[in-house]
Design a protein around this nucleic acid. Structure first.
Lengths: 211, 211
DNA sequence: CCCGAAACAGACCGGTTGATCTGTTCGTAA
DNA sequence: TTACGAACAGATCAACCGGTCTGTTTCGGG
């Protein structure tokens, strides 16, 4: 005999939002596989019936988290700042610095939301992999586009914007992985400095070429 | 009533080896949490009694895998080649190329053994984190030492060997993560090219300084 | 006002997971 | 030869996990 079910909120969008918020937070700090659906229900304050009405399986929650949380996190922390910066190099420098500051304030390093899920789920399921790859592609493309804009405006000249963008994303992702293992933002700062030096070299060569 | 237990190999080292081999392989392709102890027992051809005699918990298997498999994998694929190379830059270039070739031959990208476990386990358990951090440190230190040797022999001059080594390790780890998400070795090759260009710049500046 | 569908409540379930436990066999030192 | 601990066999277990199911409540259209 199911319980009487006295109270009820009946706000489907709100329920979905709370489930995704709870799942996104749990997936980022504990990972997908070590997070149980019961934990998500508890953190979201939602019953099993409600959750499974909107998300039939745990996998569907994972896919939704990537599409509606991880993707926009990359958009907000990386793509927008880079797009708004004066140059690609400047945007990258600022973003690295901003994230390092956030890490220092929080005191613990939980890693890049995308990087974490990428490594855990890329091989586990083709659907996950596709979703993750698209976020990586959008990220890398945004940076490459900025480099191309730099080239057009004569600001900087990079021999291969796409390769260089991949290099930046890789450096960041890797630095975050090391930072997570060390529980310290130093690797991020080191990589930021090395990248800055690299862009400075590009700029120097560009200037000497103009003369 | 326990079974009669007719046959038996009675080779503790062999049993340990098989468990660690099976666990290392499973952890690398499926991850720690999605690998069950039953899977490990099956793949290793070992009974529950035998396995738990040598490894009381799953965690002890994980720690042993990092210490006795992942650590030596980093040693063989990265530290030794870099140490034996003429210069740090040359060793890094060769190692990237060798790994990209291996990836292309295998056809699938399962990622860096250390990077995979680092992201999955660094936050899950302090013991795991410590073990992983030490492997990262050894890796980074080996590269930095090579850079310092380069400096001494006048081959190349890097302003900060430690930072540059972190940068190299991060670029590789991140490139491997992207390669895993794309199931393609291209990101690795792109990063290798960008790193090579960076070292070429260093060399150019060193030469012009000597003149 | 009625009714069907969407939204939700919560007990329940089958399969799995990591680990235990009892009992057997092998190596070896006395 | 015997005694004893290490090495191993394999049935078993309690907890848990993802998902189901039945029933209740809410809402909007007719």
């Amino acid at each position: 005999m199911p319980a009487p079910a006295r109270s009820r909120s009946n706000a489907p969008d709100e329920t979905k939002r709370r489930v995704l918020d709870a799942a996104a937070a749990a997936f980022q700090s504990r990972g997908y596989h070590s997070t149980t659906t019961h934990e998500i229900m508890r953190d979201a304050g939602v019953t099993a019936g409600a959750m499974h009405h909107h998300f039939p399986t745990k996998k569907s929650i994972g896919l939704a988290v990537i599409r509606e949380r991880v993707s926009s996190a990359v958009e907000q922390t990386w793509i927008e700042p880079v797009r708004l910066a004066r140059t690609g190099a400047e945007g990258i420098r600022q973003t690295f610095a901003a994230i390092a500051t956030t890490l220092d304030k929080r005191g613990s390093v939980i890693g890049c939301p995308l990087g974490n899920l990428a490594i855990e789920l890329s091989l586990a399921d083709p659907d996950f992999r596709r979703e993750i790859q698209e976020v990586f592609d959008g990220w890398q493309r945004a940076i490459a586009d900025k480099f191309r804009a730099d080239r057009k405006s004569g600001e900087l000249r990079h021999d291969s914007p796409d390769e260089l963008a991949t290099f930046v994303v890789a450096s960041y992702s890797g630095a975050m992985a090391i930072a997570k293992a060390r529980q310290d933002s130093l690797p991020l700062k080191s990589c930021a400095k090395q990248l800055a030096a690299l862009f400075e070299d590009h700029a120097r060569r560009q200037r000497s070429k103009r003369r």
